[in-house]
C-alpha cells in the first residue's frame, strides 16, 4: 500500500502533505501528557502488527490494522501512523520521503473515519455486537485506504488507472481478513478489558 517517490504528480504530493500535516496537528492537539505513553506504545504495537504475515491461499499478506488503530486512537491515529511510516521509510526503505504525507493521509484518514462511524458502537451491547462493528470498521478502513491509493494514482496519470483498479480488487480478500482479525481483536479486548472501548482512550 506504500506509494513511492516519483510516482505521483506534484499537486497530489503537495495536497497530501498539507492535508496530512493538518491531520497530524489535530491529532497532536488531542494528545496531552497523560495520553502520549498510550499513543506511543500503541503506535509501536501497530508497527509490530504490520510484521505479522497472515497466510491466504498460497500467498500471505501483512497486516495494516489501520481501522483498529483509528478505533483505539481517534484523531491521534494520524501522528501515530505517521511515526510508523516515517520509521519504515528511514530504517527499512519502505515507501518514500516526499510521499510521506500522501501515505499518511491514505492510511490515517480512513482510520479516523472508521472511528467517527463505528467508534461509539463498539463499546455498546454485547462483546459480539461490538466485535461485529469492529470488523466492519476494519474492513471500512482498508477499503478506504485502497480507494485513496487508487485515487492518488489515478489523479496523477491516466496510465495508472488500470493498475489502480487492479490494486483495489486485489485487496478485497485483504479487507475480509482485516475485518475478521479486527473483529476478533475487539472481541478479546471487550472480554478481557471491557472498559477499554467503553471509556475509550480516543475520547
Amino acid at each position: 500500500m506504500h506509494i513511492v517517490d516519483g510516482a505521483l504528480s506534484n499537486p497530489v504530493v503537495i495536497g497530501g502533505a498539507v492535508a496530512a500535516a493538518g491531520g497530524i496537528a489535530l491529532g497532536l492537539k488531542t494528545l496531552d501528557l497523560d495520553r502520549i505513553p498510550t499513543a506511543g506504545v500503541l503506535s509501536a504495537s501497530f508497527f509490530v502488527a504490520s510484521l505479522i504475515h497472515v497466510p491466504i491461499g498460497p500467498s500471505s499478506v501483512h497486516l495494516i490494522l489501520n481501522g483498529l488503530a483509528g478505533l483505539l486512537l481517534g484523531w491521534a491515529a494520524f501522528p501515530a501512523l505517521f511515526v510508523g511510516l516515517l520509521l519504515q521509510a528511514v530504517f527499512f526503505g519502505f515507501g518514500g520521503l516526499t510521499v510521506l504525507g500522501v501515505n499518511t493521509l491514505n492510511i490515517a484518514l480512513p482510520a479516523v473515519l472508521a472511528w467517527l462511524l463505528f467508534g461509539r458502537l463498539i463499546g455498546r451491547g454485547t462483546p459480539v455486537q461490538g466485535a461485529v462493528w469492529g470488523g466492519l470498521g476494519g474492513a471500512f478502513a482498508i477499503a478506504g485506504t485502497t480507494a485513496m491509493v487508487a485515487a492518488a494514482l489515478a489523479l496523477s496519470g491516466e496510465g495508472f488507472l488500470p493498475a489502480a483498479k487492479l490494486v483495489f480488487f486485489a485487496h478485497i480478500p485483504v479487507m475480509a481478513i482485516e475485518a475478521v482479525l479486527t473483529g476478533f481483536a475487539v472481541l478479546l479486548a471487550r472480554k478481557v478489558k471491557p472498559e477499554l472501548f467503553v471509556r475509550g482512550i480516543a475520547a
Binding site: 498510550t38 506511543g40 506504545v41 504495537s45 497472515v54 482479525l181 476478533f184 479486548a189 478481557v192 478489558k193
Partner: peptide
C-alpha cells in the same frame, strides 16, 4: 497458520492480546 477460520481467529486474539497488554504497559 493456514487459510482457515481458526488461524484468523487466533491471529485476531493475538493482536487483541498485544493491544490489551500494550495499554496496560502504558499505564
Amino acid at each position: 497458520p493456514g487459510t482457515n477460520w481458526h488461524t484468523y481467529r487466533s491471529f485476531g486474539y493475538l493482536v487483541g492480546m498485544m493491544l490489551v497488554r500494550a495499554i496496560e504497559r502504558s499505564e
